[in-house]
Design a protein around this nucleic acid. Structure first.
Length: 595
RNA sequence: GGGCACGUAGCUCAGUCCGGAAAGAGCGUCGGACUUCUAAUCCGACGGUCGUGGGUUCAAAUCCCAUCGUGCCCGCCA
């Protein structure tokens, strides 16, 4: 609805400008500050002042006179305030917003008939997922949800690095060492915690072991790499045994968030189907291809990248980057757009990838990257190989424990008489605990550096998930109290009369809430365009503020409330419920029925 | 050394792409509000040379240049 309003305002303003012979290239449309009544405004008058030979406020007046609000559907009135033009929403705008928003798909944009693959996480299958990487699945999942909501046809991919040197090392270590060789037991009863011990042991051995034995190990590792390159089935099986086990454990961890994938794409796929070999041939034919120190590389100096892209080692094996080129051509063949969520430390590689893809004749516009900066510990970087870092499992466990404690502490002074049972407590603990972790990550611009601190990551106060979740629970509480079935609320099947009178919602709190609800689809649209899910988080906070003001000032079910007003307010609560539930679902944060 | 990102209140962050309404939240501090749909809430107070210096503009946190600080990258690793 907001989108229609904006279109209408743009049209009207453009018409007025051309009528007065002013240029129409910049309409100066903006959203006014909170203390202004309008929903949209324009600052064009500033720019026209010199051309018009009149001060801005006078120009604004001329424009306002030129626009006949009676001919507009969603605009009730055009006012000037100094140099600004303010467009006030009409009753029809608010009524249509209310009607549109009382729908469980509110905020979802029309199908764009465009497919997009969102690749995220893609952590090497070397061990437990740690917090240093946790931004990736959380942001990635939200980006995918966001695009889905914005009308794209989304596939979520995890690209599995199962052909790199690390996996060869892991496979060798797994086959070479026994349980007896390992110092400690697994930190957790799950397969990747078990196997990572071999990986760490292997790496330590390669670093500090006796030279002769290390040389033998290196020879074995080299033969595994060669086997993979040649597409040897037995080697593939050996490596797969490690990869598949570790990956299954990591997957379980990610599902706790939950971050789920449509497909785990293994890079060996592009070696075994011949794509990599074919691609290497094409790379060698490029003008930029050079053969230096027995290795094939791309000299990208001319393209502003001073680091060569090595695509074939001197031993003839391909590199991650080589296979990733084949991987991306495959994406281009199968999707209209390709979005990758990756750490800022991969930025240079991303530039090399894009440039090489261009040189190979691909149009790389469909390829977009969302970059985030790593989460570090106060004492430094997290590393799977060295075993430094906080496991995501531990963070989630702690978050749930603290949330459970919170719920139990509050149990005694609950006003609401809804008898939370043990199951509810556990449900709330999970929803709030995990929600808080996700919200904390997804609500910030990904490019900002984060240093991990337990208390900060698990702060339930602040501008956190529980604050927004609580609004949802309040909506549900009111709806339940009004007689709607909890199950229907959970399923989003709240049926309120659609012919009710939005004019009844006349207070500032009600109008402000309705206007905020009306902006939601536009926020989804813009956030999706920018690939910035944190815009949705910012919106949920503004929305929660508005809702709380309404909650404070506008009783819905109290005895003195007129039945018609009660219905209208109930519809507003239902619309609020859908808005906040859907916004939270984009963020991947649970919307609790009660808390 | 070079490239990229970040720098807004004591702390954590919106706002920056696309310049416009005397800089907005939360936490913390201080003071208030539960016989009323859930107080994980709300109201009020205190708190800011938007890193610094220049420039462009009627107008700069926002654009340009320089500079300082922090992070990341500059492997035949991923």
């Amino acid at each position: 609805m907001f989108l229609s309003l904006r279109a209408e305002v743009e049209d009207a303003l453009e018409g007025a400008l051309s009528e007065l012979d002013f240029p129409t290239d910049d309409l100066g449309i903006e959203e006014p500050p909170d203390d202004v009544d309008s929903v949209l405004a324009s600052s064009v008058a500033f720019r026209l002042a010199s051309e018009a030979g009149a001060p801005p406020p006078q120009v604004a007046g001329q424009l306002a006179n030129e626009i006949d609000a009676d001919e507009l559907t969603y605009v009730a009135e055009v006012q000037t305030q100094g140099p600004y033009l303010n467009f006030l929403p009409s009753g029809a705008y608010l009524a249509e917003t209310l009607e549109t928003a009382t729908d469980d798909a509110y905020g979802a944009l029309p199908d764009r008939d465009t497919s997009v693959v969102v690749e995220h996480t893609s952590a090497n299958p070397t061990g437990p997922v740690h917090v240093g990487r946790a931004r990736n699945p959380i942001i990635g999942d939200a980006v995918a949800n966001l695009l889905d909501y914005a009308g794209y046809d989304v596939d979520r991919h995890y690209y599995v690095n199962d052909a790199g040197r690390q996996m060869a090392v892991f496979t060798w270590a797994y086959e070479t060492f026994d349980e007896d060789d390992l110092e400690d037991g697994p930190e957790r009863d799950r397969v990747e915690y078990d196997l990572v011990r071999y990986y760490r042991k292997g790496n330590a051995f390669l670093e500090n072991g006796p030279d002769e034995e290390v040389a033998e190990a290196e020879a074995e590792i080299e033969s595994i790499m060669q086997g993979l390159e040649e597409g040897d089935d037995e080697t593939y099986e050996r490596v797969s045994e490690v990869v598949d086990q570790v990956l299954s454990g990591m997957r379980e961890c990610l599902e706790r968030l939950p971050a789920v994938f449509d497909e785990f794409v293994k890079e060996t796929r592009f070696m075994r189907n011949g794509d990599t070999e074919e691609l290497v041939g094409r790379l060698k034919d490029l003008d930029e291809a050079v053969y230096e120190e027995d290795a094939w590389q791309l000299d990208l100096d001319e393209h502003g990248i001073d680091k060569n892209l090595v695509f074939l080692r001197s031993d003839g094996t391909s590199l991650y980057a080589t296979r990733d080129l084949a991987h991306h051509e495959w994406k281009f063949d199968n999707y209209d757009r390709a979005v990758t969520v990756l750490g800022e430390d991969h930025k240079l590689q991303a530039r090399q990838l894009r440039t090489a893809l261009e040189l190979l004749g691909n149009d790389t516009k469909p390829l977009e990257q969302v970059l985030y900066s790593y989460v570090n510990l106060p004492e430094g970087k997290m590393s799977t190989r060295r075993g430094t870092g906080v496991d995501l499992d531990d963070l989630l466990d702690e978050a749930i424990d603290r949330a459970r404690q919170e719920v139990e502490d509050r149990l005694d002074d609950r006003i609401r008489d809804d008898d939370l049972d043990d199951e509810d407590v556990e449900r709330i603990a999970h929803q709030v605990g995990i929600g808080a972790v996700r919200y904390d990550v997804v609500s910030k611009q990904p490019t900002k550096a984060i240093t991990f601190e337990w208390d900060r990551a698990l702060d339930f106060e602040a501008q956190s998930a529980p604050y927004v979740q609580y609004v949802h629970a309040r909506c549900c509480g009111i709806l339940e109290e009004a007689g709607f079935e909890p199950d229907a609320i959970a399923a989003g099947e709240i049926n309120v009369a659609s012919d009710l009178d939005a004019d009844l919602l006349g207070t500032e709190a009600e109008q402000g809430l309705l206007e905020t609800i009306g902006r939601f689809p536009a926020v989804v649209d813009e956030a999706a365009d920018d690939l910035e899910p944190h815009q949705i988080a910012t919106f949920t906070r503004e929305f929660a503020d508005r809702f709380n003001a309404f909650y404070r000032e506008c009783p819905v079910l109290a005895d003195g409330v007129d039945p018609e007003l009660r219905e209208a307010r109930l519809a507003l609560v239902a619309a609020s419920k859908y808005t906040v539930a859907n916004a939270l679902s984009i963020l991947g944060v649970a919307a609790p029925r009660s808390m």
